[in-house]
């Protein structure tokens, strides 16, 4: 995919008035203090790495955006949304149960662990889990669709789009305090916003404002 905002990086604003110290502190942690494994077993961790690499977008600018470490941290610290849908196990238990069920489904279908499937097969397999086309016995009473959508995918995406690189790629404004925005109308941009380019690399002209 051609990038719409190739020359935009939220972190270029790091020393500007779009950032304050407390936000810098949060993002310093996110960028430089990636936590180690404390909640998941090594097997669970490796599986989640494999799942995340299909579920989250592939970073356009190369490198990788860590996902599993942050989910591990949330679960280790009990820093979750707290509520659960009736019939679902508590969040920590749901993760363990769900990851085990996905691996069991992969082995039942392909006689191999999920991580060893080619990416095309992985995607076909994940779409099946997403639709809830599963063997209920392997899920031990847990709703597979809910685990996939409400817990696994929501969790992975929530970590991915908390990362400045993912936000830069989509042209998101990013941190905005103490300075906010001045030009907020249609087709209006402040100088500290992302500049969009067309597929041919030329600056994108703003769409005509309809009246």
């Amino acid at each position: 995919m051609t990038e719409r905002y190739p020359d935009y990086d939220i972190l270029d604003k790091w020393s500007s008035v779009s950032f304050d110290d407390k936000t810098r502190a949060v993002l310093t942690q996110r960028l430089h203090a990636v936590p180690g494994r404390r909640f998941f077993t090594q097997t669970e961790w490796d599986l989640l790495e494999a799942l995340s690499s299909r579920l989250a977008p592939t970073p356009e600018r190369g490198g990788s955006i860590p996902i599993t470490p942050w989910i591990d941290k949330e679960l280790f610290e009990g820093d979750t949304e707290g509520f659960r849908i009736e019939g679902m196990p508590p969040t920590l238990e749901a993760w363990r149960k769900g990851l085990a069920a996905i691996e069991a489904e992969a082995k039942a279908a392909y006689v191999r662990p999920f991580a060893e499937l080619d990416s095309e097969t992985q995607d076909i397999f994940l779409k099946r889990i997403q639709k809830g086309e599963v063997d209920p016995a392997l899920w031990r009473g847990m709703d597979a669709k809910r685990f996939f959508g409400d817990i696994l995918l929501k969790g992975v995406v929530g970590v991915y789009y908390a990362h400045p690189q993912a936000q830069s790629e989509m042209g998101f404004g990013g941190p905005a305090s103490p300075r906010g925005y001045v030009r907020i109308g249609l087709n209006e941009h402040d100088p500290w916003e992302a500049r969009e380019v067309r597929a041919d690399g030329k600056p994108r002209r703003s769409g005509k404002t309809q009246r």
């Binding site: 579920l55 977008p57 994940l126 959508g149 929501k154 995406v157 789009y161 936000q167």
Partner: peptide, 17 residues
Amino acid sequence: LAREWGQTLAGRGLWGA
């Protein structure tokens, strides 16, 4: 904002590419 919108689109069933 970005993360909320990502999770909204995930709620629509979108992932990956």
